[in-house]
């Protein structure tokens, strides 16, 4: 049998590719400067105000009875020793009390003023980039044509098929690979429709100036401290998505995927019989 010939198909429009990479840059720096900002008050609460004695999550350094500094992560009533990573980290001998380790933050040293400069600069880049993506995606049809699941997509039989093949890390290589499958569509829509806007809105709700003009939105999230908490949880949900996304990129053909997000061209193996499952 002859070796199947690969065909390059045009998969990602220029706007999608550009906004994708700007997002990579912006989200990375937003996360890292955000982790630095969190270090200024490494505790989270629900509601409008902080009840300092009762955070639901805190990442601090504590002196043990043996006069030894330890990093302590407290979640509800549970306490974990996270020395070296959370609460107290750095090279042995140079360890410092800091919520997130210096390799994960921008700047690498704890500085609220500078971290805020990074955060707000890249927040603007992120928002403008997101608006361009949305505008072009809505007008040009990318969101409707490529991301909105079709009736066939959401048929239980198809859903089950996609879940099973994904779990086995078997990905379509033929005509099917021209478009996103229903799990991709659902995930990407969830990210661009819910997670990313949620970051912007909860971020804005921490701003006292913004709050004066939008009490209702702060109330919607349950208060300023709740908004800060949701901001934090959503950020880590996005980190989770990115890890899964990177894993899937590698598992389904790293080079082919990366090339398609740079040049737009994605290689598929066309089969004469078309879609056979």
């Amino acid at each position: 049998m002859a070796k199947p010939t690969k065909v390059l198909v045009y998969r990602h429009a220029a706007v999608t590719r550009l906004t994708h990479w700007i997002n990579v840059l912006a989200l990375t720096l937003l996360l890292m400067s955000g982790l630095n900002i969190f270090g200024a008050h490494p505790a989270l609460y629900w509601g409008q105000k902080a009840v300092f004695a009762q955070p639901w999550l805190s990442i601090t350094a504590e002196m043990t009875k043996g006069d030894e500094m330890r990093g302590v992560t407290q979640l509800g009533s549970a306490k974990f020793d996270t020395t070296g990573v959370l609460g107290y980290s750095g090279k042995v001998g140079e360890r410092a009390p800091v919520a997130f380790p210096s390799w994960a933050t921008v700047p690498s040293y704890r500085d609220l003023a500078d971290a805020r400069h990074w955060h707000f600069f890249f927040a603007w880049l992120f928002v403008i980039n997101g608006l361009i993506y949305w505008l072009v995606g809505l007008i040009g049809g990318h969101i409707r044509k490529d991301l909105l699941p079709t009736k066939t997509d959401v048929a239980p039989k198809n859903l089950w098929h996609e879940i099973v093949t994904h779990a086995r890390l078997r990905f379509p290589k033929g005509e099917e690979a021209r478009r996103y499958n229903v799990l991709q569509k659902g995930t990407y829509l969830g990210v661009v429709l819910i997670l990313l806007p949620l970051m912007v809105l909860t971020g804005l709700c921490m701003s006292p100036g913004f709050d004066a003009g939008a009490h209702w939105l702060v109330d919607f999230f349950g208060g300023r401290q709740s908004a800060r908490t949701i901001h934090f949880i959503t950020a880590f949900t996005i980190v989770g998505f990115v890890l899964l996304h990177l894993f899937m990129v590698v598992a389904s053909g790293a080079w082919n995927n990366i090339r398609s997000m740079i040049t737009g061209r994605y290689a598929i193996i066309p089969d004469k019989t078309g879609d056979h499952r």
Binding site: I37, F38, A40, H41, A43, Y45, Q48, K49, A50, F52, L112, R116, M206, P208, D211, R224, Q225, R228
Partner: peptide, 12 residues
């Protein structure tokens, strides 16, 4: 009113 510290906490 709610006092919003730049560090991230709030008190009323």
């Amino acid at each position: 009113t709610r006092h919003d510290c730049v560090e991230g906490w709030s008190s009323i």
